[in-house]
């Protein structure tokens, strides 16, 4: 099972990074989203994997680690906010410049005049 989670993290990271390296805003945002999943699962897994022992206090003797869960919970919500801001910025750039490249256009020729 650990193997499944670890490989899932790896595949999410690889796919996310590949998309982040694309040239247009939308794939980059998608890539960042995939990376977010990978990071959240990675952080979550730092509490080690436990099946069937949620951190709800009952008569049980073992519980899974609650701390990474609390941290990841807010991370999920914050990442929504972050995604929304990035999407808004890329949208603004596209609407303003009719271009959704993430890279600055290559300078044609430096005019040499700074001002």
């Amino acid at each position: 099972m650990e193997l499944l989670v670890a490989s899932a993290i790896g595949i999410l990271t690889a796919a996310g990074l590949y998309l982040v390296l694309r040239l247009r805003t939308f794939p980059v945002i998608m890539g960042v989203s995939l990376l977010t999943y990978a990071v959240n699962v990675f952080l979550f897994a730092s509490g080690r994997l436990t099946v069937g022992a949620p951190p709800i206090l009952t008569d049980a003797t073992t519980y899974t680690d609650p701390l990474p869960q609390a941290l990841v919970l807010t991370a999920i919500v914050i990442s929504f906010g972050m995604t929304a801001v990035v999407v808004m910025i890329s949208l603004g750039a596209f609407l303003g410049g009719n271009d959704d490249h993430v890279d600055d256009p290559k300078p044609e020729a430096d005019a040499g005049d700074a001002s």
Binding site: V5, A6, S7, G10, T13, A14, A15
Partner: peptide, 16 residues
Amino acid sequence: AVAVGVAAAGLSYHYM
């Protein structure tokens, strides 16, 4: 991307 992915997988597998 694949190199980073392999590293991420290896790291998580290792500490789990």
